[in-house]
Amino acid sequence: MSWLGPQEWEAVRLSLRVAAWATLISLPLGLLTAHALARWRFPGRQILNGLVHLPLVLPPVVTGYLLLLAFGTQGPFGRVLEAMGAGVAFRWTGAVLAAAVMAFPLMVRAMRLSIEAVDPKLEQAAATLGASRVWIFLTITLPLVLPGIVTGAILTFAKAMGEFGATITFVSNIPGQTQTLPSAVYAFLQVPGGEGAAMRLVLISIAVAMGALALSEVLARRIARRIGQA
């Protein structure tokens, strides 16, 4: 991609990597959380629900600062991770964490809605046919919530590609380390003559976002048709 400068190309690659990892990590956690919120009744359910949704309503800079307090080199979790050699502060892995936290509510919402749409009576029917809870989840619930999982994953990926506030607060804006695509746009706009580079990145942003939305539509529709719900 000769029309992109090395710093721009670096930012795009980093963003793709951060978004992919953020999505992968959130998938199992998101599914577990969504399932718990949709199906289980336990003390603290409302608190969990609130915590999950907090990043959606808090200013991103606040979320970023809280992450810094917890996972920074002096934070309680940060110190443990640093000791293990897996520190995240000011590293690309920190950008993954920030993006995952910010996108988590979107993923959980999408999955929870589709889990709630699965009739528990189908799960009862599976039990009478010999399926244990684990088998019921694997053979009935999971295939039926697949559209929600796909939608959630794609939304997470798109959101992670675009995350800015929490990322820049938590891991700063270091080219090649933590300068994701939006951070790079911001950086280019701060220097004279950077508009051209910023505009190229903006176009890439738009393309990725539109592509993700279109893909999620197509996939969700195809799966829905396959499982006979459309």
């Binding site: 009739d119 009576k121 189908l122 009862q124 029917a125 599976a126 039990a127 009478t128 046919l129 010999g130 399926a131 244990s132 088998w135 009935i140 295939p143 039926l144 396959r226 499982i227 006979g228 719900q229």
Partner: peptide, 20 residues
Amino acid sequence: QPPHRRQIGYVFQEGRLFPH
């Protein structure tokens, strides 16, 4: 005995076939 160990067939009012 949990339901999946009872070996009892159940035909529900609404069928409850697995749509997928």
